[in-house]
Design a protein around this nucleic acid. Sequence first.
DNA 1: CATGGTAAG
DNA 2: CTTATCATG
Lengths: 293, 293
Amino acid sequence: MSLASEGIVQESGTAAGGAGIAVRQKLRIATVNVNGIRAAYKRGMEAWLAERDVDILCLQEVRAPDAIVRELLGDGWHILHAEAEAKGRAGVAIASRTAPVATRDHIGDDYFVTSGRWVEADFEIPSDGGTKTLTVVSAYVHSGQVDSPKQVDKYRFLDVMGNRLTELKTTKDYALVVGDLNVGHTTLDIKNWKGNVKKSGFLPEERAYFDRFFGDEHGWRDVHRSLAGEVAGPYTWWSWRGQAFDNDAGWRIDYHMATPELAAVASDAVVDRAETYDARFSDHAPLVVDYRF
Amino acid sequence: MSLASEGIVQESGTAAGGAGIAVRQKLRIATVNVNGIRAAYKRGMEAWLAERDVDILCLQEVRAPDAIVRELLGDGWHILHAEAEAKGRAGVAIASRTAPVATRDHIGDDYFVTSGRWVEADFEIPSDGGTKTLTVVSAYVHSGQVDSPKQVDKYRFLDVMGNRLTELKTTKDYALVVGDLNVGHTTLDIKNWKGNVKKSGFLPEERAYFDRFFGDEHGWRDVHRSLAGEVAGPYTWWSWRGQAFDNDAGWRIDYHMATPELAAVASDAVVDRAETYDARFSDHAPLVVDYRF
DNA sequence: CATGGTAAG
DNA sequence: CTTATCATG
């Protein structure tokens, strides 16, 4: 079934909102690195989700078998879950209130097939009487470590991701890549950026990928930055260590990357920093954006 | 320094207790498998120890590096600690208020040298103007599993232990072997013994070792059983699973094994089943006995 | 400083 | 069902 047929919220263009005069429909898309969905549920993720009325939920670091993910999320979701081959590691998912019309569970030809770091789901969006395709990706880039094989894998993944970004942008009506990309793009994205210029996550070579992704070469849009403006933060990840969270000594490494046509209909980007919710259920905060078609 | 010179509790034989007329001294010896001393301290072991006024504390399954054991127990103890070679595994210790005059950290020639399952400490006991030697052993027998190499190791350990029991009994004035011996001797020692006759811990072949240890062949005494009488229990271990503790579905696998001369001065054997204390800090309960010289 | 898997109990 | 360690984040 398509989004159009399964009850996407219809908003009216006027106050009265007469029946059938639907003008725009809102699609709320959230991404969050849950750092183990079992731990996240123990810490109150369910309450957050119940309150937030999300249409498409993108998860990273699920770190649980598929059966457990389905049991925890409960009924009412179409769940696409790419587990990592290594048990308890990585794992990305897209849970949607309506069924995707197509799905893909990896990028690249071979190396990243079982890494649990990339899933794609295509949704049908009603448009002027017809439909358009929205591709949503839940991505989890390697965390990296300077002078280690992890860093080599990270660059290799970013290379393959760049290729896929080009394909998505040229073949899909709307495309959105969300997730934990494990790189801060600019000095606005890390509270203590000066102390991290030689650390994986803020290396010049890593940041250059994002210059290309968000620059003329690829032409994607950084939705959260566009809506938040050129200010420091808001961050999406804080170390568990010390008082990083209380001091807001964070990193913005979770993104909504949208093609321009999609970015144009984005609004209300919010980092759910768990002050309005009961608990901090992960070291990452959810990043929630509404798209109106 | 010997016990005699470091302030063992002197008890008087009469109500008045005139100075210098010390008749008997009490030595309180406790054994407990702590199942990780760090976890035990988090669960309230310190409160138990503070309340119990123990002179010699024998520990099994310490499962922590020596520095941590010393930090947790704090000042005022002489600590003898045999770590296992494998980190976080086994480990036995004897903590005493007075210093031992000699110590040994294993049994056998080679195989069990780094297993962290046997420590011996010799203490001097004043006796008729002179001194006698009390050897205290903290022992941790393998837990075993039928048809596995663990069971082979368990029998091998019990064999070597039997040899050492003979040596101790013939060479020491008083000898006491305490600890988690991981075998229930008789049907009184396991609540559900019928369901466990084929399980490691209550195998006929294992029980036969204890028939010999406590029979004419070795001639040791089961202090706790002697004082408790021929009744079911009291048990010293309960599985964490289910309601085993609440239902008192336990095993008596922790012992005070004493040479006859020592057993003759034993009194007040108590299993600290954690109803009188704040918390159950281990799956084993401490077994505390007073010896009066 | 947290996650889950693991071996061991 | 709990322990500590491990690799990973």
